[in-house]
Every structure is written in C-alpha cells, then in structure tokens.
C-alpha cells in the first residue's frame, strides 16, 4: 500500500522541503501542498494518510507563534480536519506546526475533543536559539511515531517553545494518559529538570512533545526532519554514528503504522 503524505506549505512555513524529503526517504508518497490549494479542494484529505504541518514562521509568528495560521486552519479546515483525525489518520506538527496544533486545540485532545488546553510560549531566555538537545520518550507513552524510540538527539530552533499546560490537572492527565511523548534530558539521560541548556526553553516537566490519546497525532518542538544524514549531527566529526540520521526513525514509524493500520 502506498502511504500518502500531505505536507502543508505557505504563509511562512519553511521546513516543508526537508519534511517532504524525510517522508519520501522512508517510502511514502509525499506532496507539498499550499494551504490555499488544500482549502480549495478539501477532498485531497480523503486520499491522505498522514498530514504534516512543518516548521517555519507562519505569519511571522506575529501576535503569537502559530496563532494566525491556527485560526485560519480552524476556521477554514475545521470539520474536514476533525473527520481526518476521527478516521484515525496521522498528523504531525513540528516546531511551528506544533505551535499551530496546540493553539487550534488539535493537541492534546485529552478527551478526544479539540480545545486549547496547553500552549507554547516565549523561551525563558527570551531568545530564539538553535542548538542540539537530547530527548527521551517516557516509557508508557502512546505515541505511534516513537514506537522503537527511547532516546534521540535532534536540533531545536525556536523562540517560543516553552510548553505550559492550563493547570496541574491537565498536566497530570497528559502524564497519566501516556500523552507526554518526548522530554528533554541531560547527556547522561537523566531528567533535565528545567536546567538550561538541556531543557532549552524552560518547558514544564521538560516536555518537548505530546501526542493525543490515540498516539496518532503528534507535535514536537525539535526537528526530526533536520537529522536525516549523519553529517547533520554536530558531533559527526568526533564520534561514530549511523549513516542514516536518527530523525528518520520517527517518519519510518508513522509510515509503517499507516501501512499496517490504515
């Protein structure tokens, strides 16, 4: 079965090329589609198995990161997207795409309902930063994108990546439901506990990525599509690493899951 991926573009999204490439490298058919072209033909979603909202600066991050794009998607794509996710199809939002997803309420969908329960806001440093981080997928997490992933190193490149939940109850549910998908850790694998630069933004409970209760909808601040080749890793001149970049595993998992389940 061919797994069809729709990678959104337009309005300042800027990681669409490498996101598309990542899906193609793991065997999917992936098209970059401008949001306006999708809105003009919503039936495109019917043949799509995975929707990707890549990183970038949609609308310049003006007002708040992802906000204007999220509003546009909610207003113009809402019911079609709701059908897409209730059909059990997969969605990933990376960096700006993650910001879009939490602001339109597509994550965390704690009770299977879209509503904003969490946010991503200004890093504690008050700065945009580009650095590599080490991440751990907590045991018991439900994310199908992370099936065989325990630890992974990826670049972060954001100014507004500090994850905050509405309140402790929401946070607790995320933990209890296995919806906390990725957390920042120290190089030795111990929790970052908010310490900079291991947790680069001050995110609550070191949360770098979350998924919905089905594990099929996934958002994360780090860029898995930014680590497709050994040479992307900052330490490749020093240490032995596999030829294939670690970020590809995330896309592989999703494509394999879609092939098996959809």
């Amino acid at each position: 079965m061919t797994v069809n991926v729709l990678v959104l573009t337009g309005f300042g999204i800027n990681c669409d090329n490498e996101t598309q490439r990542a899906f193609v490298r793991v065997g999917a058919e992936a098209d970059r589609v401008h949001l306006n072209d999708l809105l003009a033909d919503l039936s495109r979603l019917e043949s799509t198995h995975i929707l990707a909202i890549p990183g970038g600066f949609s609308f310049g991050d003006h007002i708040a990161s992802g906000k204007v794009f999220a509003n546009r998607m909610r207003h113009k794509l809402g019911p079609a997207l709701e059908r897409f996710v209730t059909d059990g199809k997969l969605v990933i939002g990376i960096c700006n795409g993650f910001q879009v997803m939490v602001k339109m309420g597509l994550l965390p969908r704690i009770d299977g309902v879209s509503a904003q329960e969490t946010t991503l806001t200004c890093n504690d440093s008050s700065r945009f930063e580009n650095r590599w981080v080490r991440l751990q997928a907590p045991s018991g997490n439900r994310c199908v994108w992370l099936r065989d992933v325990n630890e992974i190193e990826l670049p972060i490149r954001h100014g507004e990546g500090k994850f905050i939940a509405r309140d402790d109850a929401v946070l607790q549910k995320l933990h209890d439901n296995g919806q906390v998908a990725l957390q920042y850790v120290r190089p030795d694998g111990s929790p970052a506990k908010g310490a900079f630069p291991f947790n680069p933004n001050g995110a609550t409970d070191d949360i770098a990525g979350i998924c919905d209760p089905t594990g099929r909808i996934f958002g994360l601040m780090p860029h898995p599509e930014g680590y497709q080749d050994r040479e992307n890793h900052p330490l490749w001149p020093r240490i032995t690493l596999p030829e294939e970049g670690g970020g590809l595993r995330i896309f592989q998992n999703a494509v394999a899951f879609a092939r098996d389940e959809l």
């Binding site: 490439r21 700065r127 930063e129 580009n130 650095r131 670049p155 930014g226 330490l235 001149p237």
Partner: peptide, 22 residues
Amino acid sequence: VRMYDHEVLGQSVLKQFQGARQ
C-alpha cells in the same frame, strides 16, 4: 550566532560552533 537558525533546510554539515561541547 545561536540566535540565528543555522540548520533550516536540513543541509548542515559543518556548523559555526564545533567540538565536544559545540
């Protein structure tokens, strides 16, 4: 330099800051 995105497009091979602690 850290405040510039120096890896978008996914083509990076040698970055501005290198070594054990980058």
